[in-house]
Design a protein around this nucleic acid. Structure first.
Lengths: 231, 231
DNA sequence: TCAATAGTGTCTTTTAGACATTATATG
DNA sequence: CATATAATGTCTAAAAGACACTATTGA
């Protein structure tokens, strides 16, 4: 192919790295894997793959999750986060990385927990050492998730359908790290147009009793009107 | 450099395309240029350049504006929009494009108006024919700008300091395409913490009179609390 | 029965929006 | 004076938040 400018340009390697968030045990967790590279022994990284010929960026993101963590989640929410292209971000050469943000309902750790596992995001500061510039990507991903919960219906990507409003509330509590009033939360969710739709089903109470909770499905709304602002 | 996977991977060309928005005559406008390629004669495109060795993506964005439109705006707001990597998006080969969104205060058309000029975004549907997949990028850029005016202080990127609250209101009106009540707008802006800070100066009235308007500067806030929601 | 969770009602505070009123300029 | 724009005041409606109360379950 021809150059656009005639000036010397880099032919970069292009990679996709995926920050997959989920909620387990009421806490926000992030999937990390251990890279093969021997000089990165003991470090953890976001699952990432180089982009192949004739492969879309979204396809590369799905392949990274499948190949590195055996996670096939075709229905998971997947969106671009941003692209990291600092010339020195990868010591092996110029690699431009398109970072993705993904969310799934509660998911078990992959088979080999030494190669791929979920980490509490609260522990990331004093837990795994991150490789490359992934310590810059991860905070961006978490902040994006926190922010999008406010003005989109993204929280529903963390729960399986049908879900109770208590489950949905626990998503907000885990991602934002706050406690929300159940009564006010309920009123806000059901009064936000097309956020959730009632089903006829009920979830059985827990082992300690309690009134059965009505189950809901995702509504058609993508943006929330009005927004669900952080306290 | 070594491959991360051993599998066949694309070595993509990486480009940066910039959607530069400004406000002129009370209307939101977008900068477009005419590409050199003879097969694109008569078409318009976002200013874009291939990424050079040892050049950051931000630097490429600035260079695209400087080389293609003679616009040097080191203080302009510049942020990533998203990355477009569809394998077929450029007929000349695989080009992954990192799209940027930029905003400047009112700016004149570049010298050669046949090679680079601003267009009313309201006219883009029935005006210039866009090249490549830029008809997908442009709506994303406009929607991003409209959305970020709601929950960030980005509107101040469209005005020179110091500015009056009427000028700031006209930014919202131009980007959103609505009329806002001046009294309520003022109250909301000054009550939003660190959005703007008062100066001691006043702008003289227009030719038909009117009370002089106090001038303000940008405050320290980036995110607005509470948000400035679209009507 | 009590404890636990789901769901409703009510009150207060805050915010948004419509719109009248006052202030300061030009002609 | 009239007119235009800036800035303030006032009223109403909508939304957010605190918290009491009712409903339905398990033990």
């Amino acid at each position: 192919m021809s150059s656009l400018t005639g000036a010397p340009v880099a032919t970069c390697a292009v990679a996709v790295d995926v920050a997959l968030l989920t909620i387990r045990a009421g806490r926000l967790q992030l999937l990390l894997v251990q890279p093969d590279a021997p000089d990165l022994a003991g470090r953890w990284a976001l699952p990432g793959r180089r982009v192949r010929d004739d492969e879309s960026l979204d396809d590369t993101a799905h392949r990274a999750l499948a190949e590195l963590a055996s996670i096939t989640a075709p229905d998971a929410h997947l969106e671009q986060l941003r692209t990291y292209g600092d010339p020195a971000r990868d010591p092996r050469g110029r690699v431009v990385s398109v970072a993705y943000l993904a969310m799934t309902p509660t998911t078990r750790d992959p088979q080999d927990r030494h190669r791929a596992r979920f980490w509490d995001v609260a522990d990331l500061g004093h837990g795994p050492q991150l490789a490359y510039d992934h310590d810059r990507i991860v905070p961006d991903a978490i902040e994006r998730a926190r922010s999008k919960l406010e003005y989109t219906s993204l929280a529903t990507a963390f729960v399986e359908e049908p879900f109770t409003l208590a489950e949905l509330r626990q998503v907000y509590e885990a991602v934002w790290g706050v406690r929300l009033d159940p009564a006010n939360f309920r009123r806000k969710v059901v009064s936000t147009e097309d956020f959730v739709v009632e089903t006829t089903g009920f979830a059985p109470p827990g082992p300690e009793g309690g009134r059965p909770a009505r189950r809901y499905r995702r509504g058609g709304a993508h943006r929330l009107h009005p927004a669900m602002l952080r306290p």
